[in-house]
Design a protein around this nucleic acid. Structure first.
Lengths: 126, 126
DNA sequence: CTTTCATATGAATTATTGTTCATATATTAT
DNA sequence: ATAATATATGAACAATAATTCATATGAAAG
């Protein structure tokens, strides 16, 4: 398969008879749609909020910074499970941590977490 | 295994020697933590945002209501894939729809979608 | 330096999820 | 009725992800 065939194959989607969206709208979509890479990252970020264990961890951290073991006990889960999830939260920069001897204290990284979760809650409440 | 064993087994989590969180904090966490069912629903909601195809659909709908086929063409995906994802968005009440003959037009349900996505974008930008 | 405690991590397993394919439903036109 | 078009949906498959288990790392104490 030649390169140009790959490109044209990409455009070989089923088409409906009438396109309802006007050219103006299509132009606006193309203009305002962020790059694929950014949209991918955005989805990855929301994926992090899409697990009840991580949501619970964030709720715990709303109250105070806390060490891994305390979080595990509060949520009645294993240290390993919590540690794995904290890693995900850390990689998304939703939590930060500081070490104090053997203990590692985690806390919320910034205020977007609050806003995002609150908006989610509001949406559910409707 | 007796019932009471199941109950007590639940509390048989590894414990660290020192609990750092003070009683006051633990009480606050227990008080402010929503019910498990709500936290589960919240995670389910964010799961919907956690897929780039659905994010793209939402971005398209930022511009205008649109029919399934137009969305499929704009995103260069099959009608079936888009329809499946629209169902997920519909079930989470993130989009609504109206029928006009053979065509079904989808649009954003409320403004939480904007806020949530914007906050996500802001977080990424930091 | 060895032991102990808190945390992190790799591998395996199980569960979930997105897309495709085939087909069903719904609406309009012939 | 029948055909044609737009959308929806069930089943299968492939890809991801959460938890567990075993073990590694890192820090403090003996």
């Amino acid at each position: 398969m030649k390169e140009c065939d790959i490109m044209s194959a990409q455009n070989d989607v089923e088409r409906c008879e009438y396109i309802h969206a006007h050219d103006e709208i299509i132009a606006q979509v193309n203009q305002n749609m962020p790059d694929d890479e950014i949209l991918y990252d955005l989805a990855e970020l929301f994926k992090i909020f899409g697990d009840s264990t991580r949501i619970k961890i964030l709720y715990v951290l709303f109250e105070s910074e806390m060490c891994v073991c305390d979080i595990a006990q509060l949520l009645n889960m294993t240290q390993s499970a919590i540690s794995h999830q904290l890693r995900a939260l850390k990689q998304s920069k939703l939590v930060k941590y500081r070490r104090e001897g053997k203990t590692v204290f985690y806390s919320l990284a910034d205020d977007h977490v609050h806003t995002i979760i609150n908006q989610g809650m509001e949406h559910l409440a409707e």
